[in-house]
């Protein structure tokens, strides 16, 4: 902050200066927020608009700005590679979300039984979340490689017929991405659910126990239904992770074999930086944006509304 210019000679401030200081004082909060606001307007919303615009042009290596309609989207949806990417996103997303939630809930319930070493176990379940997806991908690429990894190990134990070559099998490779992603993120879902279990009213559970209701019924009828909002949050986070998945695929399979494990994020990157097809990159980015919109906007809206009602 530079101080306002001094007009007065003596100790008495000039009226103009006083006004200036007053104005600054009143508007300081706005002034402080303004740079971030402008940054978000330009770098988020402006950039989305730019990408949307370019997705309607014939841009290839360089962007063009004459709008030509939906040709890029027609090309996109006619492309077999994009088709694979979308299918993969669907398979990967569905399996990843459902299994991560199931595993997370199971581990949270298991951990919630007065385990003395809970802190240590929780730390172990959650540490992969601190790793980069590139590290996770590198580790699993090594473990799952058929030549020297898991497959070779089990064969070495005497099971000669054992085969686990999903990593190099175009039909199965996407499931290795699911495995690595689950390892990375299910502990986090566990942490969410564990916090949820702890917030259920203990009195109700005690009352149910006094009534002789079996434990599994207490879980299915009382505890789990009361955690509905946490299921929703977990779903949003996992769906968001799935759509953005990029690093993991790059490190684990590189999108291969062939394009077998391409996801929309890797498709977009390939078009933007190796194929030099800006039009396709922009339209695929907008398609990803649309999926995120469809999931996140209703959620954010309901969140902001419920906050207002508090």
């Amino acid at each position: 902050m530079t101080s306002p210019p001094r007009f007065s000679r003596g100790g008495v401030p000039h009226a103009g200066e006083q006004l200036m200081t007053k104005w600054l004082e009143d508007h300081l909060p706005k002034l402080m927020l303004a740079p971030s606001f402008v940054a978000v307007l330009v770098f988020v919303y402006g950039f989305i608009a730019w990408t949307a615009w370019v997705s309607l042009t014939r841009s290839r290596l360089l962007p063009k700005y004459e709008i030509e309609g939906f040709i890029q989207y027609e090309r996109l949806f006619a492309s077999p590679r994009w088709d694979t990417a979308l299918n993969n996103l669907f398979i990967f997303g569905a399996l990843f979300i459902v299994i991560a939630m199931a595993l997370g809930l199971l581990m949270a319930i298991l951990l919630d039984q007065n385990i003395r070493t809970e802190g240590a176990i929780r730390t172990i379940y959650l540490y992969p979340m601190a790793l980069s997806m590139i590290v996770t991908g590198t580790a699993w690429k090594w473990i799952l490689n058929p030549g020297l990894g898991l497959e070779a190990m089990v064969k070495g134990w005497g099971f000669e017929g054992f085969s686990f070559d999903w990593l190099v099998d175009p039909d199965m490779a996407i499931y290795t991405v699911v495995i690595a992603a689950l390892w990375q993120s299910s502990g986090f879902v566990m942490a969410l659910f564990l916090a949820g279990l702890r917030s259920v009213d203990g009195e109700i559970i005690k009352a149910a126990q006094v009534d002789g209701i079996p434990t599994w019924r207490i879980y299915t009828a009382i505890i789990i239904p009361s955690m509905a909002p946490i299921f929703l949050s977990a779903f949003i986070v996992l769906a968001h992770l799935a759509i953005k998945s990029f690093d993991l695929v790059i490190a684990l399979t590189g999108g291969g074999p062939g394009f077998a494990t391409d996801l929309p994020a890797t498709y977009m990157y390939a078009m933007a930086f190796s194929r030099g097809d800006i039009g396709q990159a922009a339209s695929s980015a907008m398609a990803m944006m649309a999926v995120v919109f469809a999931i996140v906007v209703p959620y954010l809206y309901s969140e902001l509304r419920s906050q207002k009602n508090d």
């Binding site: 988020v44 989305i48 968001h240 759509i243 990157y269 800006i278 990159a281 980015a285 995120v292």
Partner: peptide
């Protein structure tokens, strides 16, 4: 909302 966008949408610009 800016937290949620897939960053692919800002890479090119």
């Amino acid at each position: 909302f800016g937290c949620f966008i897939p960053f692919q949408v800002v890479l090119l610009p």
